[in-house]
């Protein structure tokens, strides 16, 4: 793998770690399998792209994208808590609805951003090479989001939110509303996923209505890979694990794409198959590790 490809993988890993941290809130902390992220990722991209296209400051477009994602997440949460729709289905309904909403937001299936200023071009203009500028900015955002989540999970609300994913009966008995926790958690998660979508649009130079397909699987793969590499004991290690898992996942994919089997080399269209195999290996890994005698808790 070339250095250029490596930087590309790290860039992708950092970008999607922000999304994976959102998925971590719902899947791991809340135990709420939220599939709306497949819709809120392109939603973030759509909002950011169309606003930049119309001359809005790229940083402001990110803030609006986060608010949009959080609002969509709130819809999923309310469908589940108020209207008693199964959490998995509530997420799917939001995801499907967002496909149309995203087309409305953009007014077209994709928005190109070539030639427009983004949060990345501002640093490139200082003379820094693009691949380094991207890694720099995405790295800072990923670290800030990670630090924010570690703080959040230790607040009064954060504790009640984690307990909600563990034991709702206990949370209610201690006077906290589990519905409120689900609302906060799913909204926050989708806000982060939309943030990742907005950054994706800006770093890639376009937003596309179908760019969200497989978001949830990539997020899960990162989380599981992180748990296999760094055991998930404790909130701090779990959050760091998600970021490292996301980078490892993108590097693994970049490496897999260079593999040649006989005359056939793998192509990006094989990505979903590679992801599935990676997740299986990562899920087997904790067992393998103890089998070969490496002490891991």
């Amino acid at each position: 793998m070339s250095l250029y490809a490596f930087f590309g993988a790290v860039e992708q890993g950092l970008l999607f770690s922000i999304m994976a941290l959102g998925v971590f809130i719902t899947f791991r902390a809340l135990d709420f399998p939220d599939l709306s992220v497949d819709g809120t990722f392109p939603m973030g991209a759509a909002i950011s792209a169309i606003l930049i296209f119309n001359g809005v400051n790229p940083w402001i477009t990110i803030a609006i994208a986060v608010a949009g994602g959080a609002a969509a997440g709130a819809v999923t949460a309310i469908l589940n808590t108020r209207f008693k729709i199964l959490n998995l289905l509530a997420g799917i309904l939001t995801m499907i609805a967002l496909y149309s909403v995203n087309l409305r937001i953009m007014g077209m299936p994709n928005v190109p951003l070539l030639g427009f200023d983004t949060v990345f071009t501002s640093l490139e203009n200082t003379g820094m090479p693009a691949y380094m500028a991207n890694v720099f900015i995405l790295g800072i955002v990923a670290l800030l989001v990670g630090a924010f989540l570690i703080w959040f999970f230790h607040t009064e609300v954060g504790l009640a939110l984690r307990a909600t994913g563990d034991n709702m009966k206990m949370v209610k008995a201690q006077g906290a509303s589990t519905n409120r926790m689900i609302l906060i958690g799913v909204a926050l998660a989708n806000g982060l996923v939309a943030l990742a979508g907005a950054l994706a649009a800006q770093v890639q130079g376009f937003a596309d209505v179908s760019m969200g397909i497989g978001t949830i699987v990539a997020g899960l793969a990162s989380i599981i890979l992180g748990e296999a590499l760094i055991s998930s004991v404790g909130v701090v290690r779990a959050v760091i694990g998600v970021i490292i898992g996301s980078i490892a996942y993108r590097i693994a994919i970049a490496m897999a794409l260079t593999i040649k089997i006989g005359g056939v080399s793998l192509s990006p269209s094989d990505l979903n198959l590679i992801t599935a195999i990676l997740v299986v290996i990562a899920l087997m890994f904790p067992g393998l590790r103890s089998k070969i005698g490496v002490v891991g808790k």
Partner: peptide
């Protein structure tokens, strides 16, 4: 215990423990 300490009070964004 920190969750139990907040029974009957509003939970905000102060440190839990």
């Amino acid at each position: 215990l920190a969750i139990a300490m907040k029974r009957g009070k509003k939970r905000m964004f102060g440190m839990g423990v």
